[in-house]
Amino acid sequence: MSQATVTHHHAHHFASADDEFEAAKQGMWVFLVTEVLMFGGLFVAYGTFRGMYPEMFHEAHKMLSVPMGALNTVFLITSSLTMAMAVTSAQKGLRSRTTGFLAATFLLAGCFLVVKYFEYMHKIHDGLLPAGFFTNHELTNPKAPLFFSLYFVMTGLHGVHVLIGMGLIAWIMIKNQKGYFSPAFYTPVELVGFYWHFVDLVWIYLFPLLYLVS
């Protein structure tokens, strides 16, 4: 299993490896704060327009496919689970198991994007596009393009996060294979985990807000 290992030395401005870990983690939390506020702005915009045009939201959301959205929710939640297990495995020093869970997470993220791709293609085909690009004739509500502006911006930004997450997961997977991590040092795995759980967290709200408007 653990053939080659690379020992991690904490940077000299930290008193200990633990200090370094705590500092890195706190940095991650601070970063996630900025993320909350970035998505937060979009959620406020969403709330504003939904409050102004409740009927339009109700009509427009029917154009989204609940099964697809639900499937994607399942993918993301399961990927959060495998990510958590990857962190546990890394903490226990089970290298190939860590790689396995990371690979599973990566694949689930890929599935999410594939589903999203089909959803987007479908919307594009039906002319359910933001603002001036909107050409759909089924939806008569003059404000309907607004819903799709929100839909594409919100899921688009989230999708970019998924893509970045996949890159990060691939990166730690390779590092893990090269033996960079051990029970004494697994900071990157844990922090990418944080990021990934956050991506899941955003989707947990996006799904009911966009797909299940009542």
Binding site: Q26, W29, L37, G40
Partner: peptide, 12 residues
């Protein structure tokens, strides 16, 4: 850390 993360939701 809880306070930091929680604060973002407070601002939100």
């Amino acid at each position: 850390n809880g306070i930091i993360f929680g604060a973002s939701f407070m601002f939100l």
